[in-house]
Design a protein around this nucleic acid. Structure first.
Length: 476
RNA sequence: GGCCCCAUCGACUAGCGGUUAGGUCACCGCCCUUUCAAGGCGGCGGCAGGGGUUCGAAUCCCCUUGGGGUCACCA
């Protein structure tokens, strides 16, 4: 059975890279009739962030990549939080200690730093651990450990030969074992390092395919060595390209907005964000660019992942979000999603019908739900900003506003059948171009020159508000 | 710097020995539109360079260059 996983570290905001990895792991697992696991890697106490954990899990639900097994859902391989699995790791490390595949090292942090510094000064190329305790007498090691002396446990990496990583996308990648380090697998605080914990968990949880970012390639030989030390089989390794900043470096919050929560707050739709991520290093066989996760599951193959590192382009993400807004979601759905944004801005719609009508009119004019709110304020409140270019138009119309208002007031309603002839006749009677009437009117009604069509505006705003705003726009 | 990965328009990509190198975003122009968008049509723009292999290379191999990742008791 195919089992995939993501193993995020709860250290901060839910990262788009996590959503990206989740997408590929989820889609592949679902397509193969397998399962998708989420496991939290919180073995670094110093970087642990208590709210991050919950937010990562919530993010996955929001975006629609719900795991089959996770800290909140549980499952046969649980617990799914590494800090709750300490006995398991310690037990496994003990096995390696007993088999001689690992050894205790009693170097202090200061000693290591000093050694490293000395090596650097001497211009040594080898930067790894000096393996001081690799051949330390076992009895002595046992004694010092038993006496409570702080220590770490390191893996005894073979000093000759090579380890080959068979990457699904890149073929065999060779590493000289001599160039590898005796990495720490159990820290002095009793917590395992990522390398040990991830391999033990992947094995115990039955993970068949490790689909992860390419930054892990260089530590994969070490992972393979851990697996071998236990006598376990390797999963299929598949390293996907890293999402990039515009300058091509690894996507980072210093240079880009990497928080999924932030995109959510800006009014990006989960479907659109997911669709966009799906076009990063992957493409639909038929070239379609707008596709759902379900479409992706139907046509996915790991082999179609391209290897160049894709730049995360906010511009195209926005375009795609707009595409979903105007062509994929129904007006009713959009209304429901827009409502919380409206409320957060202190606005509310008098009715579902009205909200939907406004959205229909605005649909092609916003690309995020926040933009919708920002650009539609005049539909929901009489307090809206007057833009500078609109103010200028207002002055042009000031002279005829009272008369225009008078005439509009005599109409039974503001429907186009009545308002259009009126506006045209009104302009003609004064020797004005129709636009010379419409633009000042638009400015008076909305404070803006970028709005839906004037007749939609009149209809939606209704007679009462139209007359009121016209009056308000007329200088006393 | 060592090791490792990668390389098609500015960006995302299609291409997997024979194509006028296709599509999308962005940009520019035109159309539609008495606003702004959206939409339609068109345009600009690319196989990093050099060697091979081959009748024939964007496609295969090598070198160079460039970019990236990684070298923690972080993941």
């Amino acid at each position: 059975m195919v089992v995939t996983r993501i193993a995020p570290s709860p250290t901060g905001d839910p990262h788009v890279g996590t959503a990206y990895q989740a997408l590929f792991n989820y889609v592949f697992a679902k397509q193969q009739g397998g399962k998708f696991i989420v496991r939290l890697e919180d073995t670094d106490r110093s970087r642990y962030n208590p709210t991050s954990e919950r937010r990562i899990l919530e993010m996955l639900e929001w975006i629609g990549l719900s795991p089959d097994e996770s800290p909140t859902k549980g499952g046969p391989g649980g617990p799914y939080v590494q800090s709750q699995r300490l006995p398991i790791y310690q037990q496994h490390v003990q096995m390696l200690l007993e088999s001689g595949a690992a050894y205790r090292a009693f170097d202090t942090a200061e000693e290591l730093a000093a050694v490293r510094e000395a090596a650097q000064k001497a211009g040594h190329k080898e930067q790894g651990y000096n393996r001081r305790y690799r051949d330390y007498p076992v009895a002595e090691s046992e004694r010092r450990a038993a006496s409570g002396e702080p220590h770490v446990v390191r893996l005894k990496v073979p000093q000759g030969g090579k380890t080959i990583v068979h990457d699904l996308l890149r073929g065999p990648i060779e590493f000289e074992n001599a160039a590898l380090d005796d990495k720490v697998i159990l820290k002095a605080d009793g917590y395992p390092t990522y390398h040990l914990a991830a391999m033990v968990d992947d094995h115990l949880m039955g993970v068949s395919h490790v689909i992860r970012a390419e930054e892990w390639i260089t530590s994969t030989p070490f992972h393979i060595l851990i697996l071998r030390a236990f006598g376990w089989d390797e999963p299929v390794w598949c390293h996907t390209p890293l999402l990039r900043n515009p300058d091509k470096s690894k996507l980072s919050k210093r240079k880009m907005d990497t928080s999924v929560d932030s995109y959510r707050a800006q009014g990006f739709l989960p479907e659109a964000l997911l669709n966009y991520l799906g076009t990063m290093a992957w493409s639909m066989p038929d070239g379609r660019e707008i596709f759902s996760v379900q479409d992706m599951i139907e046509h996915f193959s790991l082999e179609r992942i391209s290897l160049g590192g894709p730049v995360f382009d906010l511009n195209k993400l926005k375009w795609m979000n707009g595409k979903y807004i105007r062509e994929v979601l129904s007006v009713a759905e959009l209304a429901e999603r827009a409502r919380p944004f409206l409320e957060r801005a202190g606005l509310s719609a008098p009715s579902d019908r009205y909200l939907q009508q406004v959205i229909e009119a605005m649909r092609a004019r916003f690309e995020t739900l926040q933009e919708f709110v920002d650009r539609s304020r005049y539909f929901f409140s009489d307090e809206y900003p007057m833009q500078e270019n609109a103010r200028a138009k207002l002055r042009e119309g000031a002279g005829f506003f009272p008369e225009l208002r008078e005439q509009l007031a005599r109409l039974p309603d503001m429907l186009q059948d009545a308002t259009e002839p009126l506006l045209k006749a009104f302009a003609e009677a004064r020797g004005l171009k129709t636009a010379a009437v419409m633009q000042p009117l638009r400015a008076a009604l909305t404070g803006s020159l970028e709005t839906p069509g004037i007749f939609d505006l009149l209809t939606l705003l209704g007679k009462e508000r139209v007359l009121e705003r016209l009056e308000r726009a007329t200088p006393q």
